[in-house]
Design a protein around this nucleic acid. Sequence first.
DNA 1: CTAGGGCTATCC
DNA 2: GGATAGCCCTAG
Length: 481
Amino acid sequence: MDMDISRWILEFVLWKPLEDTIFNALIGVLPLPNEDSRLKKALILRKIQSEISNGSVSEKILEFLEVMEELYTQEGIESSEAMKAAYCAVAVDCTVRFLNNKSEKVNYFEAVKRIWKQRINKMEKVENVGVVSEELWKWRDEIEAALWEDRRCENVIMRSKSISAVVAVKVFVTEAKERIGPPFLEVVAETLRRDDAVKAYLGLENKEERGERIESLSIAGQDLTCSNHDKEASKRNALRRRKHVAFKRTRGTAPAGVCKGVKIADSAEPGVEASRVQEDLLHTPKIDIAQEALKLSSLELRAGVKDPLPEALELAEALMSLGRDSSAQQPAENENGRAPHLVVDSNGVVQANGGNEDDQLIGLQNAAPKPSIMARNSTAHTFEWNDSIDNLSEGSPSSGRRFTLPTPRRTKVSPLKKYGFKKVTKRRKSKRWSTIEEETLRSGVQKYGVGNWRLIFDTNHEIFEDRTPVDLKDKWRNLTS
DNA sequence: CTAGGGCTATCC
DNA sequence: GGATAGCCCTAG
């Protein structure tokens, strides 16, 4: 299945009241893009929603919030107060719940260690972590103090009653969902609705057809019926889509339409046998139903989404014909007003192409069999471009509309003398070995033997501060020389 | 990751 | 300037 369609479907069903087991099965079988921050965020939010569905919060939410914060940071988005508040509230809730019962004091101790000492303290060393707040540090002090003083315990319990972790998380989820925006399929459906309204006003489309199309989209994933008309349309669109398959992302080297998971659409394509083997492994009634629904949703979507390519081609053609008329007046700019493409011709002359995609494509298609880039060119020499443009008269005469840039001069360089980048590593400041370090090294060698520098280093890393296992080896060489 | 050669800063 | 300690680089 096409990665984009898989992504759209997942994004669409994310917020549907689908059972987690079915949803997890979907995740398992659909090809997922490796880097899709939007989908990842939506997945995290769904996971968080699942976690709080029983009316309480869990420590897993802390992890989800941390991942969410990382995604925000990667995108340069600032974390919100709602996120900080949710993180703090969950951390407090997951700790203080053990204070209510005195017999659970051990569990409270463990929770403080796990959540506040390990998870939260490590964030103190990093600046601008989006889930931490002043409030969080205040709570940490209170919670740690409650470890030793009963009076502080009461205080912590009282204060924690004033906050509701579940509510805080819900507020965050709502806000985060708004940030992400509606699923792509819903946006498409809405756009189509609006488009149809305009067309209806202009009398460009008959009512019956419009009703059918809107219905087919609005029922995607719910209703399993599909008219013959839609099926035909879907086939046409599917064929058209394949024409510009180059714009689609694929995973690995699998042919189009084949994925590691279950193949859902386009069963006439190659690779069907391989996917069928896996399909057979995943036959449960629920998964079958979900697969069937997805198949139909996908087909209906293809039928409903208008392929922009024919219109774009028409527009391009119109622009090109206009451009041809006016090209005489604008020699340095191409028909579409875009900057000219720079191409290097067979003589090594850099030329500006008009940016005409057709010209380029024809050029490529008509070219003699393209040699492999790995094959050695017998006429090739080792040259480097000299960027200086001090000899402007050297440019070859313009031919037709082509705009010619001056020929770059070539300078012969020896292939043996490649320019190398010198590593700019700063040498560490020399630090004398202390007696304690030497003694630790000796005892380490005695215990683990010569050569196990990593092991010796790891078991005494607090003593060997600023050293490396190699330093230990060097020092031992020095001690024994 | 380790071993071993080589480089450099520091000490005398 | 030689000796040495500490550090770096790289092959295996």
